[in-house]
């Protein structure tokens, strides 16, 4: 004798399929899509469509609330595993470094130029300000950061800071610098939210302090060694800061002038693209941290320091901007 309620007949006919789908979805969620064998892999989309049509039928013909709820959650979970799933972490990472990151950097070239111009202008301004009146220095750079490298210091002591062989707490200091810089990179991306104004301020401040330090060293005739001391990690570090500033500017511009897109969509596109550039900048800053923490201690000569810095800069430029074979790039 047949049961009286539609849901019962319906369950009897399809429950095995639903349960198989549920098992597969749970397996994919817990491990990865590679945990499925070939049969299951072929079956999963079919089972998903079966469950979807079951859901439509159940909504139209059954009053069993539990059944409809169950099918809704099952279809939702299956949908996100079938349509929303990403690659394995390693494959994503490889694609990020090979294609997505340089691609995103290239697309931000206008913002990168603007960011570079801002930095250069700020360096010049900082330099000229401190050269004309050393008192500016104390307004631009806090004592903790100056560490005795102020206009009152002698040329010899300034020179000594560039070639100190002091090793204690060196790794801690390098780590601190890296986390600090990475934090700044994230901020200059995220603060693009406020129409990019804080991002511009961060870039300007960064440039001003650099210019001020440069002025102090140049004023005592050790500008050359200072530039070399800075170049070994500075080319990488400044490039990274400029790029993450560009990412923040992109968001700010998209929010202020969304063009033909809705403001929300423009912000979204800029945010996703900028995030890639910013994430890459953090990786660059890690490299800069290594160069600063280890490279600079090992390499003591001015010439080699400058050379390493220039090689790094050329390397980054080639990596980002050299044309490469087009491929089906997914962002």
């Amino acid at each position: 004798m047949q049961p009286a309620v539609n849901a019962s007949r319906f369950r009897a006919a399809h429950q095995a399929d639903w349960e198989r789908l549920e098992r597969l979805v749970a397996l994919v969620e817990k491990r990865s899509v590679r945990a499925l064998d070939d049969d299951d892999l072929i079956a999963m989309p079919l089972l998903y469509r079966t469950a979807l049509s079951s859901l439509s039928l159940a909504r139209a013909s059954s009053l069993d609330r539990a059944l409809v709820d169950y099918l809704e959650q099952l279809c939702t979970r299956a949908y996100f595993q079938l349509y929303g799933v990403t690659d394995t972490g390693l494959a994503q990472l490889r694609r990020f470094f090979a294609r997505t990151w340089p691609g995103a950097v290239r697309e931000l070239w206008r913002e990168t130029l603007a960011s570079l111009a801002l930095t250069v202008a700020a360096v010049l301004a900082g330099y000229l300000m401190v050269r004309s009146d050393p008192a500016w220095f104390y307004g631009l750079i806090p004592d903790a950061m100056a560490q005795g490298r102020d206009p009152a210091a002698s040329a010899a002591s300034l020179h000594a800071t560039l070639h100190s062989s002091e090793q204690s707490m060196l790794t801690t200091f390098a780590t601190f610098l890296f986390t600090h810089n990475a934090q700044i990179a994230i901020f200059s991306f995220a603060l693009g939210l406020a129409f990019g104004v804080p991002t511009v301020l961060l870039l300007l401040y960064n440039g001003l302090s650099l210019g001020a330090l440069l002025a102090v060293f140049a004023g005592k005739g050790v500008g050359g060694p200072f530039a070399c001391w800075l170049a070994i990690h500075g080319t990488t570090e400044l490039f990274a800061v400029i790029l993450s500033g560009a990412a923040g500017l992109r968001i700010g511009i998209a929010l202020a002038f969304p063009g033909r897109l809705a403001r929300e969509d423009a912000a979204m596109a800029a945010g996703r693209q900028g995030a890639l550039v910013m994430a890459g900048s953090v990786a660059m800053l890690a490299v800069a941290g290594l160069l600063e923490g280890i490279g600079r201690q090992v390499v003591d000569g001015d010439g080699p320091r400058l050379l390493i810095g220039l090689v790094m800069l050329t390397g980054w430029l080639c990596f980002f901007y050299l044309p490469r074979r087009p491929a089906a790039v997914e962002r």
Partner: peptide
Amino acid sequence: GARLTGGAVVARNAM
């Protein structure tokens, strides 16, 4: 409803 890309995840968490 499309794929959740790495860029989106980084962006939402950097914020």
